[in-house]
Amino acid sequence: MQRVKLFLPLLVLLVLLPLFYVGLRLDPYAMPSALVGNPLPDFELSLVEQPDVTATSADLKGQVTLLNVWATWCFACKAEHPYLNKLAEQGINLVGVNYKDERQAAQKWLRELHNPYQYSLYDNEGRLGMELGVTGAPETYLVDAEGVVLYRHIGVVDDRVWREILGPQYREALGQQSP
């Protein structure tokens, strides 16, 4: 019995090693989304810059869109914003979701830092964000012309992310080789 007790730690280690090996090879940033492959949730929200105008999920249909969740309180969003302006200048269709923010602060942000969005939805209560499964800003969803979510990116969209991940998928959704 004493000999079995001596080998018990070795047996436990042999069982745990394969689990550790698999766990270390997983991408810690990969967060699957139940929305990928499904229609964008239905919504009707006012616009940041025009509180009396509303937009719905149906308004996104007909064109491939990057739906970008942002907020003025989000430091990473400020780092991402210049690159979004660059994408907008290239003709990439961007729609913003201002997430759990103050409207006046969001309006000032867009005035001062330039507005890359066709329009930005005002989701001050975070309901759309909750339906999207937002874990924090920034997050970007690639939505096809039929309103189906093709991809979810958590974190800053920069040159590398666009070149390696979002750009190729955006072009594929458009049916093109380059934007």
Rank of each mutant, 00 (worst) to 15 (best):
Q2V: 07
Q2P: 02
R3A: 06
R3G: 06
V4K: 05
V12R: 03
L14P: 02
L17T: 10
L17N: 07
F20D: 13
V22W: 15
L24Q: 13
L26M: 13
L26D: 12
D27S: 07
Y29C: 06
V36W: 12
N38H: 10
P39E: 14
P39W: 10
L40E: 12
E44F: 07
S46R: 07
Q50L: 10
V53Q: 11
T56N: 08
L60P: 00
V64Y: 04
L66D: 13
L66K: 00
W70H: 04
T72R: 06
T72P: 03
T72H: 11
W73N: 08
A76H: 11
A79R: 12
Y83R: 09
Y83P: 00
N85P: 07
A88Q: 08
E89Y: 06
I92R: 04
V95H: 03
V97T: 00
Y99L: 05
D101T: 01
D101E: 09
Q104H: 01
Q104L: 06
A106P: 01
A106F: 08
A106R: 00
Q107P: 10
L110A: 01
R111M: 03
E112V: 04
Y119Q: 08
D123M: 05
G126C: 03
G126P: 02
R127C: 05
L128T: 00
G129W: 08
L132T: 02
T135A: 14
G136H: 12
G136L: 14
G136D: 14
E139L: 05
V143E: 13
E146L: 13
E146V: 04
G147W: 13
V149A: 09
Y151R: 14
G155R: 02
D158I: 10
R160G: 06
E164R: 15
E164W: 13
Y170N: 11
R171S: 12
G175E: 12
Q176M: 15
